[in-house]
Design a protein around this nucleic acid. Sequence first.
RNA 1: CGGGGCGUAGCGCAGUCCGGUAGCGCAUCUGCUUUGGGAGCAGAGGGUCGUCGGUUCAAAUCCGGCCGCCCCGACCA
Length: 489
Amino acid sequence: MAKNITPRAKDYSQWYVDIVREAKLADYSPVKGCMVIRPNGYAMWESIQRQLDKMFKDTGHVNAYFPMLIPQSFMEKEAEHVEGFAMECAVVTHSGLEPDESGKKLKPKGKLEENYVLRPTSETVIWAMYKNWIQSYRDLPLLINQWANVYRWEMRTRLFLRTAEFLWQEGHTAHATAEEAVEETIRMLGVYRDFAENYMAMPVIPGLKSEGQKFPGAVNTYCIEAMMQDKKALQAGTSHFLGQNFAKAFDVQFQTDQNSLDYVWATSWGVSTRLIGAIIMTHSDDDGVVIPPRLAQWPVLLVPIARKEEERASVMAAIDRLTKELKDKGIGFRVDDRANVTPGFKFAEAELFGYPIRIELGPRDLAEGNCIATLRHSREKLTLPLAGTAQEVAGLLDRVQQELFDRAKAHQDANTHQVNSYSDFKEFIAADSGFALVHWAGDTADEKRVQEETKATLRVIPMHGEPEDGECMLTGKPSKQRVVFAKAY
RNA sequence: CGGGGCGUAGCGCAGUCCGGUAGCGCAUCUGCUUUGGGAGCAGAGGGUCGUCGGUUCAAAUCCGGCCGCCCCGACCA
């Protein structure tokens, strides 16, 4: 139905690219691998930021900003960290430009004393600063977040899901004890889960990453893992317990309340503009984007319909009454009163852009004292009395939010299955059947083998999984709990 | 880095095999009529055909080099 959008069933990744382009969420930039986030996409990021920032503040964090340029030597200080990020670093080597031999083009001028890398993540700069800021247990905990851009020079990019530059937030906290740091790590994972499920309407599986999948430099990494419509997994957020690794690398010690000296315990956690990709791939359909009401810039789109001038005046008067009611209830809306496009076009565009509820109001409705509300996610059309419409709409928005979650949860549940042998597993993954719950006791090399043989990876060791004795599907070693394997983005 | 595809008007494409005045749809602009699921009619503007070179009377088209982008895979938030 929608123009220029490849149906999901035909080619899921082409559909994704089409949706992003057609809904004007993002555009390719002159720089390979980078994207321009257009207003429709950026509005989603602003909604995400607004809500998460509140949740971070509510859990005691404050915002700060650290520079994008990191001395190359900083990257060398933590062994695993270097290894993990070295290949993805963009390196700044010169300052200034000057004309080249031809006089028509430019070349870099002064070679820098020391190279800088564009931050792939900020642990190193931040811990270099924390060294100065932390002396005593009285300086702890230190709970700082930053909203920033980061650069990771990837071989292959996908709009929102993986780009050379992306926007994110990174929390970096310092604690006096391991227990406290672990508690923080898990608390922030909980914040992410709350946000994913209650705002993005996206069910997630919280849990632990395997040794092979954890963040470079972490003791362990927690994550929330979601299932997209094509049954592939998407890591939607991570929270790391960094132990004393960075404190040792940057020599950050503090005096304890026992007057001894100890290294500081650390966490870091982040979510990125990838969440926009997650929303698209969780809820959207062949006609456009579907945005959960709680993250929609404008949950309601009003479309006045009028043929003649005299109709127009009375319709607009009714629209004005309605918008005032919506405003009083704090419901965001936009009125599409463009005269040069037809209602049909507006309807199609509203679906493309993902307004959760569209309200049309014309002379016919006015005569009957009604308006027509259409829910984006289900296409359900409702006739609402003009008296008390806003109240009704508020309830509908809650309902939509809930239905989106339920629908996504049903999809996740329907495509999550227990698999007990490696041969069944291979078959399951080859058939793209979703999340496989398997017993696992393998090591990193075993994981690598599974990945090579099936393309599936260990996504998450669920925190709330049922304890169950079993045997590892690959090694036969005893296992106490099932883990999730799946193909992933 | 491998595999595939593409580069022609703002966007999507045809034209290339078989060389001969650069086309179509959408969008844009003007006018009139329209408005309840992507409006109609009439008119108008807009292109160094990615780039460099070769063949030819003549190149979007044939030949060669180069550049860029997208999709798929390996790597990864």
